[in-house]
């Protein structure tokens, strides 16, 4: 991987010119290189072959029907290009879409509210994680997923459910530790507790853990 030597290459599909220009600027500011920015999802495959991006940033509603083009394109691309990271940005998030995206493949996937883009750090963090094969789920989706499985989650302590929520968003142990202002050791301990209480197998790698947690939540 020569990612350390060159900036991550981004393919952007967003139909609103206003937001597209804003996103290109923010992405550049965050240190990424936008190789192509288009207004719909029809030519994504060609563009990927042409530009070989690391991450595709997609809007959900795009022409021609302005429904869930972005989600459909993401599901398609996950199967065609398992190595491509995909980040969906949307005005609203739906747990239904999150579930479909997670089920569609194993590569890096992100699904965030567009509002999150206003925080440069959050956006950079999400894109890097997705490029790396990790996940970045919006807190709104996570809380919706967690509210559904209230029964088994009731057994968790408050701290454990906080850790679980952040973990489900795709955050690393270090990121969780700094978000909750606790040590990484404490995070590890909580993660072990969570996996024990939910009856999940702790697979070691952080990405795989996240997937296990998400699989549990969307079950």
């Amino acid at each position: 991987m020569n990612r350390s030597t060159r900036p991550l290459r981004i393919l952007l599909a967003e139909d609103s010119v206003l937001l597209r220009e804003g996103l290109v600027r923010v992405l550049t500011e965050a240190g990424f290189q936008t190789v192509a920015a288009v207004g719909d999802a029809t030519r994504l495959e060609e563009l990927i072959l042409e530009h070989d991006p690391d991450v595709a940033v997609l809007d959900v509603r795009m022409p021609p029907t302005f429904r869930d083009e972005g989600v459909q394109a993401a599901i398609r691309l996950r199967q065609l290009h398992p190595d491509l990271g995909i980040l969906l940005l949307s005005q609203y998030v739906e747990a239904t879409y999150a579930r479909e995206l997670l089920r569609a493949g194993r590569g890096g996937i992100g699904y965030l509210l567009k509002d999150r883009v206003s925080s440069l750090d959050e956006l950079r963090d999400a894109i890097e994680r997705v490029a790396d094969g990790g996940t970045a789920l919006d807190p709104v989706v996570v809380s919706e997923l967690m509210s559904r499985r209230s029964d088994p989650l009731d057994a968790l302590t408050r701290r454990e459910s906080e850790v679980l929520a952040l973990m489900a968003q795709g955050k690393s142990n270090a990121a969780i530790a700094s978000a909750l202002v606790i040590g990484t050791g404490a995070v590890e301990k909580n993660v072990t507790g969570i996996f024990l209480k939910l009856g999940l197998e702790d697979s070691g790698s952080e990405h795989r853990r996240v997937l296990a947690v998400l699989a549990f939540l969307e079950r």
Partner: peptide, 30 residues
């Protein structure tokens, strides 16, 4: 604004139709 649009034009209903939107409602219920 999001809460408002959700209140009269739920996105999932627009995108996927009634069956999907109702399933999502049912899943979301506490």
């Amino acid at each position: 604004l999001r809460a408002l649009t959700q209140g009269f034009a739920p996105p999932l209903l627009q995108d996927r139709g009634l069956a999907a939107a109702i399933e999502a409602l049912a899943l979301r219920s506490s």
